[in-house]
């Protein structure tokens, strides 16, 4: 519901990659263990018809990251491997391990076959390209 509201808000601003929040991936609500759902901080910017999406996912390893494209929705999901150190008590805590999840609706202008993903130092970088350039230069005769 939150995702839908966000989506509508973004439509007004004509964003190509629409944030859908931590939407549930269909058919996966069975969980072995209760896990905290975390919403990663995201930057999205565009330059020369290439859209860059950066998501902070500290504690996530490459093998614990899953990116799926389902119709026009791109799901990113990463499990943080951060664990409580053995033999230590917790004195103070501001963050927890959990599952980072966020979904984005792509519009038809995005090339589905040219999505690149890279995970480095806990940051996921996705590169998306437009099928057709957004701006066409009009020759003045």
């Amino acid at each position: 519901m939150l995702g839908l509201r966000k989506q509508e808000k973004d439509k007004e601003r004509e964003v190509q990659v629409v944030d859908k929040g931590a939407e549930n991936t269909p058919g996966e609500p069975t969980r072995e263990e209760p896990q905290v759902s975390l919403l990663p901080d995201v930057d999205i910017y565009e330059k020369d018809d290439v859209i860059y999406l950066l998501a902070d996912m500290p504690g996530v390893k490459k093998e614990d990251l899953e990116i799926t494209l389902e119709k026009n929705v791109l799901h990113i999901e990463g499990r943080s491997s951060y664990t409580r150190p053995e033999g230590f008590g917790c004195a103070y805590s501001e963050f927890r391990a959990g599952r980072y999840r966020r979904s984005f609706a792509l519009n038809d202008e995005i090339d589905r076959d040219k999505i690149d993903a890279q995970l480095k130092d806990g940051v996921l970088q996705l590169t998306l390209r437009r099928l057709v350039p957004s701006k066409t230069k009009i020759e003045v005769r």
């Binding site: 033999g87 008590g89 130092d121």
Partner: peptide, 28 residues
């Protein structure tokens, strides 16, 4: 949880040492 000062951290300890873990994604 907006009152948490950036960056979020956890402190663990026992009688011998303290462990501090700080979330710093994308930093070298």
């Amino acid at each position: 949880a907006f009152d948490i000062e950036y960056p979020p951290l956890n402190i663990w300890n026992n009688a011998e040492k303290v462990l501090v873990d700080v979330e710093l994604p994308g930093y070298t």
